[in-house]
């Protein structure tokens, strides 16, 4: 336990430089690269004086190093600044949209694991048979499917042709918004409000986007699970379990899968980054009012402080998730000692 605590502290301390580097990269990309956000926003024909004034207002006329220090100082106070286009704090739209993205990502992850892990485990068990190759081919194809294309195909089949499922937004616009005002996680909000009809509506809207993410990302998990299961199935305790006469199903899916899960978990941190990237594209495709759509909207409006804020929040999420995954890994695998 003491070792675990020490590991946790070291790992948390290691997150700080990583986050610092990510924030620096965001700053470099958005401020130092050619292209001046103010002229870009006001247009090339704006009078010099107006541009200077706007720059003054945003602190963009100071030396780059001063801007950098100010930027880090602001972030340290959890302040993302003001929007350049709309009269609002950058944090306002972000806090509104963040739950939508988290809800989508979590359900996407759920479908990813639901499809990927059983298929991967089955393929490993039937190693080098026709079924194994079919599943591996599925994994490879799924990995190569553009997530927005998958989304559009599902929209076409279930929305346009069959007319079973809605293809855009988080709810039916006619639903009363009073049911969704507590946490921003609509599934939880509607349950808290006791509104079963609204809950059903939200679930139905969530289905296609999260299934889209699930199908596309399951490809990686098929491969990961299969590879790890093959390693596990070669180990002595599997042989021992077989020798004791434990049924084949139990050996593979209980003893085997349980142990294959640990290395899969370590990969979850990196996969989460892919999930977020996939969510950005899924949101644009399904008009899902989340962080990805906010990012794209503000890029078109050339609202750089908000663009920067959204990317900073993504960086925070990635760092925190990878920290949590590592801590969880250390907690459940006693072999990890630092």
């Amino acid at each position: 336990m003491k070792g675990l605590l020490r590991y946790a502290i070291t790992r948390i301390l290691l997150t700080i430089p990583m986050l610092f580097i990510l924030l620096t990269i965001v700053f470099l990309v958005l401020r130092v690269m050619p292209g001046d956000p103010v002229s870009a926003m006001l247009g090339a024909h704006a009078p010099e004086k107006v541009i200077e004034q706007k720059k003054e207002e945003l602190g963009l006329n100071k030396p780059i190093i001063v801007q950098y220090v100010n930027y880090l100082g602001q972030l340290a106070r959890f302040d993302l600044g003001n929007s350049m286009v709309l009269k609002q704090r950058v944090s306002k739209p972000i806090l509104e949209k963040l739950p939508a993205t988290i809800e989508l990502t979590l359900w996407g992850l759920f479908f990813t694991l639901l499809i990927g892990i059983p298929l991967g485990a089955y393929a490993a068990n039937k190693r080098r048979t026709g079924r194994d190759f079919t599943i591996r081919l599925y994994g490879n194809i799924a990995y190569c499917i553009p997530v927005y294309w998958m989304g559009l195909m599902l929209q076409l089949i279930f929305g346009v042709w069959l007319k079973w499922l809605p293809v855009s937004g988080r709810t039916n616009p006619r639903m009363l918004s009073s049911a969704f005002s507590k946490t921003g996680f609509y599934l939880i909000d509607t349950l808290l409000a006791g509104n079963i009809r609204a809950f059903g509506d939200v679930a139905v809207h969530l289905l296609l986007p999260s299934l889209t993410l699930g199908i596309v990302l399951s490809g990686i998990f098929v491969r990961l699970t299969r590879a790890n299961m093959l390693d596990v199935l070669k180990s002595d305790y599997i042989l021992a379990a077989r020798a004791r006469g434990v049924s084949e199903k139990l050996v593979v899916y209980k003893h085997g899968l349980k142990n294959a899960f640990i290395p899969i978990l370590t990969m979850l941190g990196l996969q989460f980054a892919m999930l977020l990237a996939g969510a950005v594209l899924t949101e644009t495709t399904f008009s899902w009012p989340g962080m990805g759509r906010l990012l794209m909207e503000r890029i078109y409006l050339r609202d750089y402080p908000t663009v920067q804020g959204v990317i900073v929040v993504f960086a925070l999420m990635v760092s925190v998730i990878s920290l949590l995954v590592d801590l969880l890994y250390a907690a459940i695998d006693p072999r990890v000692k630092y």
Binding site: I25, V29, L30, P34, L270, A273, A277, V280, I299, V318
Partner: peptide, 24 residues
Amino acid sequence: SLIMDSIYSFPGLILAIAFAAMLG
């Protein structure tokens, strides 16, 4: 290594979006 690992851990597409948006 720390710098490279940090970039690697960040969602590549989002970084590319930021770059592409700034470059035009």
